[in-house]
Nucleic acid binder design. Structure first.
Lengths: 341, 341
DNA sequence: CAGAAAATGATGGACGTACCTCAGGAATTG
DNA sequence: CAATTCCTGAGGTACGTCCATCATTTTCTG
């Protein structure tokens, strides 16, 4: 009737508790035949290890590090805030969190920080960083040391990460394309902005965006992507130039961060009201802009879900359990001024 | 250094383990002054109860009933599916779930089912039903018997429920208004449909919808709500009539269920492509219609979140703990064909 | 200041698992 | 068949918390 315990398995298999324990924890010194008997009993009764009790008994601590880009980035700030909240609620669940800030645009520095991690005092790492060959190697090293590794926000598809926690960026781009197409009415020119097209998420977003525009909104023409390379001044100057050049501009898709300068440039141009603007991530800035009707829609990923999913995945990987994919899919949310959280 | 335990608290506060236990579990028989001493020690050491050990020790079972409308309703089906998933996953460990189907539109029958519940074998109830005076009394009775009660999907603001788990329906209506305004271009007539304007969510949605339309889209005119009263034939007939009458119709807002007949009527009319259609809840039907471009956007509440939130709230109420409001706010999601989950 | 009542301490047994030791049985070897 | 290794059983302790009981101390009341 009730959940079967190790005792029930022992009785069912006709062996002692100690043997069941040895089998379940893959300890040596049990004959193949006996192992099979125990396994059969486990299957028959549908036994599942009570991880709560197991963790209690073995004094298990989950020690995870979150590698996040440092520097002024409102999205990362909200992520950190979410981590702070999670930390509070997860102490109770034996999870220790550590945040490792790394320079956003310096692959070598990121790798250096990863190498400096004390892997013996760590069970898992969540990494938010652009994919580079060096990073791939660093991730491989972490995996070899037996850590669980998840990619956060931006995927590392060619690195041996255990999982990617983040939205489908192609779908995000498609959604932006759909919204900008419907909001603009489908005629005119569109500007697409990002920090760098070398970053995986921007690439994918642009791809999705273009797909939808060309298939569903043939009246729209997307100009070549404008890249700021993390330089705010450059961003502001480029936007100013682009807006003043020609009257055909009807919409702007901001694929990355750097919305502060985008908005200030647009405000200066005086054309903010007429342009349809779609941006990513809900931050104090974009929230304000939504309310003020400066931005029409924001595509976001819920940082709370992001963090909780990352933690769940890291933990289940550490426990060697299978990941429940359906639960870990991060929703792509559309936020307008009317459904602000 | 390590996580403080109850033993550490006892030492720090200079009291015995038993007293710490009494304070932590709010058992009677402790002086105010002693309680304060223990609390101070808890704060000083940053003690957090180890939920693993606690759950293990207290072989507590939470017995909850979910009262849901029966009959053919795809949204309720997805809700039930989510309940099934929750039951399987660890979200619901030590939780016994029971689903109580009630006739959707018969207040007396609902109340009868509630009265028939064996309150001695139950710790909490989640109710999805329209608010009536009889229901209010029934909820009051459940509360008197010491059960936790939450309203699900549709609020019961005048009943003594502990919490409402669901979206802000005024905001949902506002969002629908915003989308239909932007998608249509802002000129023409709009049709609003529902099962019954007596149901609280429809009322609120219509209210939010009208607010936005009148303030932001003065070129749109919303016709009086069409009510089906749960009768599919009637729904189909009314839609057919409404669509054929006059050419000014540009959009449809379906506030309740009954999208099957709406779509079949629209298909028959041959005007499905040109009309902007906004509906509620993602079901196999609306998903299909989104992909086929028959519906432009769906406003949904994530049933998984709904269920998990309801369970969390019921559990914390049973434990007499405060509810963490921020975590329990259900997001209002906009789904288009490009960001389908 | 006695007696009652209230507050606190001491203690031990759960819960389900991990991990250890020790003894004795079984299988394998020569 | 004896000696040796290998398996297995029995039993214990621990993890952090809950909960119950009973003894003891402190505080309150008249």
């Amino acid at each position: 009737m009730n959940k079967p315990t190790v005792h029930d398995i022992a009785k069912e298999a006709g062996v002692s508790l100690a043997t069941v324990d040895r089998v379940l924890n893959a300890r040596p010194g049990v004959r193949e035949k006996t192992i099979a008997k125990v396994q059969a009993a486990v299957d028959r009764l549908g036994y599942v290890r009570d991880t709560f009790a197991a963790n209690l008994a073995r004094q298990r601590q989950y020690r995870f590090a979150f590698v996040l880009p440092e520097g002024p980035n409102q999205f990362v700030e909200t992520l950190k805030a979410a981590l702070g909240e999670a930390r509070a609620s997860q102490v109770a669940d034996r999870v220790l969190l550590k945040i490792v800030p790394v320079p956003a645009h310096d692959p070598h520095a990121i790798v250096r920080m990863l190498q400096r991690l004390d892997t013996s005092r760590l069970d898992g790492v969540a990494i938010m960083a652009p994919e580079t060959p060096q990073l791939r190697d660093a991730v491989a090293r972490l995996k070899e040391e037996g850590l669980a590794v998840v990619a956060l926000v931006s995927d590392l598809p060619n690195a041996p990460r255990d999982h990617f926690v983040g939205i489908n960026n192609v779908a995000a781009g498609r959604t932006a394309g759909f919204l900008i197409g419907r909001f603009t009415g489908g005629t005119g020119q569109i500007l697409a902005l990002t920090n760098s097209m070398r970053s995986r998420d921007s690439l994918e977003r642009r791809l999705g965006f273009d797909t939808v525009i060309s298939s569903d909104f043939s009246g729209l023409k997307v100009r070549p992507s404008i890249e700021s390379f993390g330089d705010p001044e450059r961003m502001e100057r480029l936007v100013r130039d682009a807006v003043s050049r020609g009257p055909g501009l009807v919409g702007i898709y901001s694929m990355g961060s750097g919305n502060t300068r985008l908005l200030s440039a647009l405000r200066a141009s005086g054309r903010l009201g007429e342009l349809v603007v779609i941006a990513h991530e809900l931050t104090p800035l974009t929230r304000r802009a939504l309310i003020d009707r400066e931005i029409d829609a924001v595509i976001m990923q819920n940082v709370g879900h992001l963090v909780r999913s990352a933690l769940r995945v890291l933990r289940t990987r550490c426990d060697g359990l299978p990941i429940f994919e359906a639960q870990e899919r991060i929703r792509l949310e559309i936020v307008t001024r009317e459904n602000l959280p």
